[in-house]
Nucleic acid binder design. Sequence first.
DNA 1: TTGTAAGCGTTATCAC
DNA 2: GTGATAACGCTTACAA
Lengths: 331, 331
Amino acid sequence: MRITIKDVAREANVATSTVSRVLSDNPRISEETKERVHEAIKKLNYKPNAIARSLANNKTRILGVVLPNEADELLANPFFINAMKGMSLYAQSKNYYITYAFSKHQDSEIDNIKELTSSNLVDGIILLRVRDQDQNIKYLKKIGFPFVVVGRPEHANEVLWVDNNNFQAMYKVVNKLIQKGHKKIGFVGAIENLNMSKDRFKGYKKALEMNQIPYDENIVAHINEFKENEGQVACNQLLKNNELSAIVTTDDLIAFGVIKGLKEKKVRNISLVGFNNTQLAEYQKPPLASVDINADKLGYQATKLLIENLEGNEKNRHYIVETQFIERESF
Amino acid sequence: MRITIKDVAREANVATSTVSRVLSDNPRISEETKERVHEAIKKLNYKPNAIARSLANNKTRILGVVLPNEADELLANPFFINAMKGMSLYAQSKNYYITYAFSKHQDSEIDNIKELTSSNLVDGIILLRVRDQDQNIKYLKKIGFPFVVVGRPEHANEVLWVDNNNFQAMYKVVNKLIQKGHKKIGFVGAIENLNMSKDRFKGYKKALEMNQIPYDENIVAHINEFKENEGQVACNQLLKNNELSAIVTTDDLIAFGVIKGLKEKKVRNISLVGFNNTQLAEYQKPPLASVDINADKLGYQATKLLIENLEGNEKNRHYIVETQFIERESF
DNA sequence: TTGTAAGCGTTATCAC
DNA sequence: GTGATAACGCTTACAA
């Protein structure tokens, strides 16, 4: 049979409440009993029952993550596993647990969220993805359930979030290209209405502006999906009647498409940059320069914000994780 | 305030015990009250409190996974995220939750396990990796805590496990090569004392034997780690004074090293096969044929075995997940 | 400083 | 069939 707080109390000749106080380091308890209780705990190898604690506290110290189930993305993108790792490391340091659930479809994400929030199992929710008009965020806000998102949502100040500085990341990339002498720099982005896309696009334009390079919409393309072949199509479009010396993209997958497009047209000497530093980037011919978004830190900091919020010592509501430019031959 | 079973009882004019019975579909309850209770539940939008349930039942319906934190492998290998996905899908179908923890080091895995098992938070544990003389398995057996492992451990019949038929998978690969006319087939495996390695090696030898091809230890290498450069070294060794027409390996990473080794020596026309069908396999030059181990099914079936065991309707204690040969140009 | 006892939201045992 | 009520293992007023 399992050792409970009662056994410890009996062993140490005190009341269960005293044991409980020792456990929570209650100041008004004599050194002597404290010691006696600790001895008993050690002797019996007592470990508190997390569930009973949760019930008494109305807090579980469990956080929930809901993961999208879009297979291709999941595999191609180390983002998720890395973010989960970062989450786990911070959670462990604060004695929290994390439970995860893969959604079957996009529509079932909200069901997973409802399930988690209504069963009283988790104290908070972590979302790893922001959609336009995000229904999950809307719901969580409506019911007032604590949550944090990776990615900056609409009405950003009402929500806990962590994100990269996408504006700055792209600004720097374009600036570097300009420093290297590039004047005609194409842009290929996807899903224009995502905050992330908007920011990266703004960074692109700002860098041109700051360097007095005129913006030319003929060498800009916004495609509808993060897909290789769309990137290829966009590439062909950009090349039409335009003399480019470089192309920046908002995702590695797009960049892979651009590489194909360039090869198809036998165009060489165009510098190219991707985003997310996926595993395949360095295996491209030529190896693709890319911006690493530090997924593990995003996960880590998101968890930190959430836990601080839950414990009532909120210091920040947002956090910016630095990006890292990984220079490779394509640059 | 949250709706509890008491509120429902009051609304439906019954006792809490009756509501509880309705919830668990107890047979001896009249249709009429059943209906009245269901109405009340709907009206109040009542959801049972998972924690309170867990305390009363002494069962949490939560399973724990402990993940290794060896970064390179984790990223290169979609195994983990896929296995986690499979686990989640089966767990959800049975109303279980899964909590995960990344270990900081290999040594801290056991700490994570002790933490999970002693806190009473999880009903069972899933291990995604078997080591030689596995201390985690030893510990779980010692304390009699329910668990399942992916990979066949020592004392296999005392443990719940799922695995691929590694013997057969390799046997088939080598057999296919022989059918294609290959006679000199090299072998590069890693970490010889893993069951997985042993089985794949046995499959290799058996296929030779069945086809009356003499076994030649000069074209066999066992390396110490799943690392690309070790594969490259092994490749050079195999090529020395040996005329090979094909090489089989026990892991894609090793095969990548072999590719490098072949290129280095400007050797062509050697067929090559990897294992695990990692994402990079199809991006090799030439694209690498590989054996897919179906990680999501491994996770799914492991969870199934564990839950069936926990619920006392154990049908099997082991399960073999089929592998899938992915033929690509390197073959 | 410590003990008593109520309470967290369920389930299960025992009556009726 | 249904209702009281104890029990699960812990925390926290309230007392002493």
